[in-house]
Simulated assay, not measured.
Amino acid sequence: MEPAVLREDMVDSLEHDAKAVVRSERVSVAMRTVPREPFVAEDAAAYADRSFERLGTRVLSPSAAGRLFEALDIRPDDTVLVVGVGVGYTAAVLAELTDEASVHGIDIARRLVYDARSNLSAAGYSGVLVDCRDGARGLAEYAPYDRILLEAAAIEPPEALREQLVPGGRLVMPLGGATQTLVAIEDNERTGYGTVAFHPMLVDGEQADTIERNRTRREDREHARRDAERRKGWEQDWIDWDRA
């Protein structure tokens, strides 16, 4: 079946009363426009309503992505920052909702940054800027933003992200630890959009592709491994225990 037909079926199911995660016409049109196959390794399953793992990150299911878009309430001239851009799919849909040049994405994992850039280019959204940054610090060079989307859970909203919003701007994020709620934060007001389950936000040094910077820790671990593998005296084949 043609991808365009599969996208139509996907969004129809998201709008149906059984799910009802897509309610606005603008989100519906954007999700019907953006192809998912550049962002999902398995083309045949690109439009299935489930999440995928890719390069150590989770590619959100269409339902989860739709909830984020509705909570953000993007206006046509909004500037948007996506924190934890991952493979780039949400950034592509946001580019449809506003403009490519108005969407910036950051991720703490460098290989995901390269992957997102490649995926966005393949999908026709090469104008979206993607950079490697610590998400908790945001992207101050291009601030302020009308909307910030944090695609990772945190116990409290990162202060730097709140400071990079325009007055009255909106931060959407999963808030909490073991139990999380999708919230939209505007100034001091919080609006909940139901429970969610996202990976926690990483800090520098926790990403899967990081190089461990503490040389002593690396060396201690290597010495411990070698000690564990070294054979004891009674295991050595050069000792003749019968003649000892």
Results as ranks from 00 to 15, higher is better:
R230H: 13
L150N: 07
A18H: 11
P3L: 07
D237F: 06
V29I: 12
E25W: 04
H104D: 15
L139V: 00
K232I: 00
Y142S: 14
E96I: 05
E222M: 14
V183I: 14
L14E: 03
D204H: 06
A45L: 15
R54E: 13
E235W: 08
A64K: 00
G56S: 08
R137M: 05
R137V: 02
P200W: 12
V80A: 13
I185M: 09
W238T: 06
V87G: 13
T179E: 15
D107H: 03
Q207Y: 03
W241G: 01
A228R: 05
A184R: 12
L161Y: 11
V80L: 11
L72V: 00
Y114L: 11
P38A: 11
R133Y: 04
V82K: 05
Y125I: 09
D146M: 03
A208G: 10
I185F: 01
A123D: 01
I148W: 07
R215N: 10
Q164R: 07
L149I: 00
M173R: 01
M31C: 07
S121F: 09
L55G: 12
M10A: 08
M1P: 10
P3C: 06
A153Y: 02
R117F: 03
T98L: 09
E2M: 12
R147C: 09
R213G: 15
H223K: 13
T210I: 10
V59H: 07
E219Y: 00
I211S: 09
G168T: 02
T191C: 01
E141K: 05
V83N: 08
Q207L: 10
E159K: 05
M201E: 08
M10Q: 04
G233T: 01
P38H: 05
R67V: 03
G66N: 02
S61L: 04
H199A: 15
D131H: 00
G194I: 04
A46G: 08
V128M: 06
P76H: 05
V5E: 15
E156C: 02
L6V: 05
A153G: 12
P158I: 08
A71S: 09
S13T: 09
I108M: 04
R170M: 11
D237L: 06
E189V: 15
M10T: 05
Q236H: 13
A41T: 15
S24H: 07
E141A: 15
P167Q: 10
M173S: 04
E151Q: 07
A46P: 00
M173Y: 14
D187V: 02
E156T: 02
L165T: 00
I185H: 02
D12Q: 09
Q207D: 14
W234G: 02
S24I: 01
W238I: 03
